[in-house]
Nucleic acid binder design. Structure first.
Lengths: 243, 243
DNA sequence: GCCATGCATATTGTATCCAACCAAGGCCGC
DNA sequence: GCGGCCTTGGTTGGATACAATATGCATGGC
C-alpha cells in the first residue's frame, strides 16, 4: 500500500532482507531508536519502502545478534544492557582480545603494521572532521587488523559481535567526553609496543585500553542516570503489572 | 527498566517459528541433515506441517546463530567447520570457561555444588541407559552450573553458543570413542578440586578437560577424513560482507 | 466508587500467491 | 564435434491477505 511517491531511504538492489537488516542495525547502533520503545514492523516497513516480511526477517536476524529482543505478539524492542552487563562486555573483550593480540604478534609483518597505521590515520582524519558516524567501523578495522595475523576466524567473529554491542554505547560517551583523542593515543602506544616486539606490554596496554574505555563508559552512564533521572518527555510509561 | 533479578518465566509461549527453529536446530545438532546438502524450505515445511514462512524465519535465526549459511538465491546449507576451526572453538572455550570458573569459585555455595552433583548423576544415569540424545543439554547444564555463581550473563551467552557448536561435532565422536566415561571422570575431578577451594587446580583441570575433548575430536575427524576417501573438501567459505 | 469482565482495536504471526533468480540441458552455429 | 546461447524447470525472495493474540477502554456488577 505504499504510495508511488519517493520513499525515505532508496535501497539499492541486493537482497532486501539483508539491506533492511543493515539499515535497522545501523539505526540501532547510532541510537536512532529510543531504547525500550517497541519497533513497529509496519512503521519500519513503510519507512524503508518494503513489505513487512523483510523487516521481520531482519529483526529476527538482529534478535539472534542480540541487538533486539522479541516478545511474542507484543513486538520487538531494542535490547538494552545494564551498566553491569556493559562492564562485563568490556571485561570479556579485554580477556579475549589480549589473548588474540599475543597470538597474533609472532605472525605480524611490517605490512600488517603499515595497514594498522593507515587505519589509524584515516581514523584520526575522520575524527578531525568531526565525523563520529564511521567511528565504530574504523575502530573495529583497527582492532581486527591487529588480531588478523593470529588466524582465528571463529574468535574474530565473537569479538566482532562484542564490538558491535560496545560501540552502540560507546558512541554517545565518546561524543560527549572527548574520549576519541585518548583512544587514538592509546592505539598509537599499542602499535609502538608491537613494533618493539614487546608482547607483554602490548597486551597490557590493550587490556588497559579496553577496560579503561569500559569503565569510563559505565561511569558516564551512571552519572547520566543519576543526574538527569527522568528525561522522559511525557512518554506514557505504562507498566502492565502481572498479577 | 528491566528488573534486576532473573525474570520469572510465566509460560513459555511457543510460536510456530520458535518451534520450527528448535526442531531444525535439534536435527542439525544431532546430524539429521547431511552437511553440505542444501536445506529445502518446502521439504522442511511439509515435513513439519507448517508453511514456508516459519521455516524461513527459523533458518534465518539459525543463520545468525551460525548453524546454517545462506547463499543468496541458492538456499541454505548446514554450515560446517574445518578441523582447525573446531580446534579453535575448543581453545576459545577453554580460555573463557577457565576464567569463568575462577570468577565463580569465590561465590560458590554448597547448594551450587550439590546441584552440580545432581546434574552429574542425571548425566551418568542417562549415559548408562545409552541415551546420547540429551547429552549436549546435560553437559551444558553441568558447565553452566559451575559458572553461574560468577554472575556473568553476557559471557554465559557467548559460551552457550560455543557449546552448541561444539556439541554438534562432539556428539558423533563421543558415541564412537566412549569419551563419555572420560568426561564424567573429569567432571568429578573438577568438582573435587572446587570442593577443596583449589581454584588453580580446578581451572587447570577444566582447561585440560576442554582442550582434551577438542583434540580428541579433531584427531577423530582427521582420521575419519583420512580413512574414508571422502574427497569432499568442505570448503568452509564464510560469508564475507564488506561493510 | 472500585473491580472484574467483555468488546474493540491495533499489532503480530502465518498462509497463499506471484516474481526474480540460478542451474541445467537442449539447440544452433561454428 | 564442440562451445555458446537460450529456454525451462525449480527454488527462493517478497508482497498481499487473513487469522490469532494482546492491550486498552468501556460497561456492568458489587
Amino acid at each position: 500500500m505504499a504510495p508511488p511517491g519517493p520513499v525515505d531511504l532508496p535501497i539499492e538492489r541486493q537482497t532486501v532482507t539483508s539491506l533492511t537488516r543493515d539499515a535497522i542495525r545501523d539505526r540501532i547502533l547510532r541510537g536512532g531508536y529510543p531504547a525500550g520503545q517497541p519497533l513497529r514492523q509496519d512503521a519500519i516497513a513503510e519507512q524503508l519502502g518494503v513489505s513487512r516480511i523483510p523487516v521481520r526477517e531482519a529483526l529476527r536476524l538482529l534478535e539472534a545478534e542480540g541487538l533486539v529482543t522479541f516478545n511474542p505478539h507484543r513486538g520487538a524492542v531494542v535490547s538494552t544492557l545494564s551498566p553491569a552487563e556493559i562492564e562485563e562486555l568490556f571485561e570479556l573483550r579485554a580477556e579475549i582480545e589480549a589473548d588474540l593480540l599475543v597470538r597474533a604478534m609472532p605472525h605480524m609483518t611490517p605490512a600488517h603494521l603499515a595497514r594498522a597505521d593507515d587505519i589509524l590515520d584515516t581514523y584520526e582524519a575522520s575524527l578531525a572532521r568531526g565525523q563520529v558516524a564511521g567511528w565504530g567501523s574504523l575502530n573495529w578495522k583497527f582492532h581486527s587488523a591487529l588480531y588478523a595475523p593470529a588466524g582465528r576466524p571463529v574468535t574474530m567473529g565473537v569479538v566482532h559481535r562484542l564490538h558491535q554491542h560496545c560501540d552502540r554505547y560507546a558512541r554517545m560517551q565518546l561524543a560527549l567526553t572527548h574520549g576519541e583523542q585518548r583512544a587514538i593515543t592509546e592505539h598509537r602506544n599499542i602499535l609502538v609496543a608491537i613494533r618493539r616486539r614487546n608482547a607483554t606490554r602490548a597486551a597490557a596496554l590493550l587490556r588497559r585500553h579496553i577496560l579503561g574505555a569500559g569503565q569510563a563508559l559505565v561511569a558516564f552512564l551512571n552519572a547520566q542516570q543519576g543526574g538527569a533521572a527522568h528525561a522522559a518527555p511525557a512518554s506514557t510509561r505504562r507498566r502492565s503489572r502481572p498479577s
